[in-house]
């Protein structure tokens, strides 16, 4: 048991495994691009067809990249074992949710039809909606930074989950059955 514990890969080992695999690198790149265009789409439909942002562009790139990392981790979990399918789905869903949340934050300006519609749909009144729009617009950069940090935290947590469920056998990371 002790030798098995020593053989458990760390988070960095998992990350290295992901980003030395051509398939996962390709997946990361594809989804980073897809997420970036998804963010652009959300912003554009909120701004009547104009890609209008008041935050530094690099934050959008960071958001796309960190969401793609989360998605790559979930794909890695799936590949390891179908036993981890539910966990993998959580991470995949989380990456979509954080990307959407980041897009809503970035699309929020003096005119925020998408965000307003969602808030009204959730039961907010006009005072709540206008306050929310203003709060988000004023604190856009910080909120977007927070979403990026959430992505990084979720990725760290996800890698930890994978690590606890794996072992290194003959130099490869494999799923290791959990003991009851």
């Amino acid at each position: 048991m002790q030798s098995e514990n020593k053989a458990r890969p760390g988070r960095l080992r998992i990350l290295k495994d992901i980003f030395t695999s051509p398939a996962f690198i390709a997946l990361f790149i594809v989804f980073a691009i897809l997420y970036y265009f998804f963010i652009r789409y959300i912003i554009t439909i909120s701004s009547r067809g104009i890609f209008l942002i008041s935050v530094p562009s690099y934050l959008l790139y960071l958001l796309s990249a960190t969401s793609a990392v989360l998605l790559a981790a979930s794909a890695y979990e799936l590949r390891l074992s179908f036993r981890y399918r539910a966990l993998a789905l959580e991470d995949g869903a989380a990456s979509v949710i954080t990307t959407f949340a980041g897009s809503l934050v970035t699309s929020c300006g003096c005119s925020a039809p998408l965000l307003a519609t969602i808030l009204y749909g959730l039961g907010a009144n006009v005072i709540g909606v206008s306050s929310a729009i203003t709060f988000i617009a004023v604190n856009e950069v910080w909120l977007l930074g927070a979403v990026v940090i959430i992505n990084l935290a979720l990725a760290y947590y996800s890698l930890g989950k994978i690590s606890r469920g794996c072992a290194i056998r003959k130099g490869k990371v494999v799923a290791s059955p959990m003991k009851d």
């Binding site: 300006g109 005119s111 925020a112 307003a116 519609t117 009204y120 006009v126 909606v129």
Partner: peptide
């Protein structure tokens, strides 16, 4: 304006 904002279609969504 506040009264119109009680109805979804005419509710305030930002300026102008």
């Amino acid at each position: 304006i506040l009264n119109l904002s009680n109805v979804p279609k005419t509710a305030f969504q930002g300026t102008p």
